[in-house]
């Protein structure tokens, strides 16, 4: 029996020592938000936190977890930073198919928790291990910046219309996401 601390809950599992944490989470415990993409630490889809640090669960033997706190995408929203990251992901509309995004959010949260205002270079360092096959990188960068600055980052979509009197107002009109609630 191996005892794990996952998202603040203690879970006992009866699995081989060398079984990667990914499969313990997905197939034994049933936390399937953590994804399988490559199994060789090349894509980042399986990223979880171990005491707050981003790790690739597909190559992490469960026996190496020990008493460290495991946080998965299902639990990351419990932290203030995680919650902000999730919200920014929605605001910027980062997600396409979404399969990589658990991992992206875990990596971004670990980054922002340690470095609240990352530079572009620091974003690259933290995020380059996460592949997005749908190519959402531009928006991932924007979303991280939104969390870092607390400023709503304008999504880049620019309908090619003539500029209006106040550029700021025009930008606001064009760029702020229209909330569905406001559409009635």
């Amino acid at each position: 029996m191996i005892v794990l601390n996952i998202n603040g809950e203690s879970r006992s599992v009866d699995v081989p020592d060398d079984m990667p944490l990914l499969w313990v989470l997905r197939d034994v415990i049933g936390l399937t938000g953590t994804k399988f993409g490559c199994g060789i630490a090349q894509c980042g889809a399986c990223t979880v936190h171990l005491d707050g640090a981003a790790v690739r669960s597909c190559v992490l033997p469960v026996s190496a977890v020990g008493s460290k706190a495991v946080t998965t995408i299902e639990g990351v929203g419990a932290s203030a930073v995680g919650k902000k990251v999730q919200q920014a992901w929605l605001d910027i509309e980062v997600v396409q198919c979404g399969y990589c995004q658990s991992g992206q959010i875990m990596s971004a949260t670990a980054l922002l928790a340690a470095t609240p205002e990352p530079s572009d270079a620091e974003i690259d360092v933290a995020m380059s291990g996460n592949i997005c096959r749908c190519g959402t990188y531009v928006r991932i960068r924007e979303a991280i910046k939104q969390v870092a600055t607390g400023q709503k980052v304008a999504p880049q979509t620019i309908p090619n219309v003539a500029p209006t009197a106040s550029p700021a107002a025009a930008a606001a009109a064009l760029l702020s996401f229209v909330r569905v609630e406001d559409m009635a």
Binding site: T32, K35, I73, Q86, L90, E93, V95, Q101, I105
Partner: peptide, 27 residues
């Protein structure tokens, strides 16, 4: 009122908190 506006996607909420299940996630 909706067409032509950059509205939020309908499928993303569950994709940022791990709750949306893909085929590979089903049990």
């Amino acid at each position: 009122a909706l067409i032509g506006k950059p509205l939020r996607r309908v499928d993303t909420a569950g994709k940022v908190d791990g709750s949306l299940q893909f085929g590979i996630d089903l049990r």
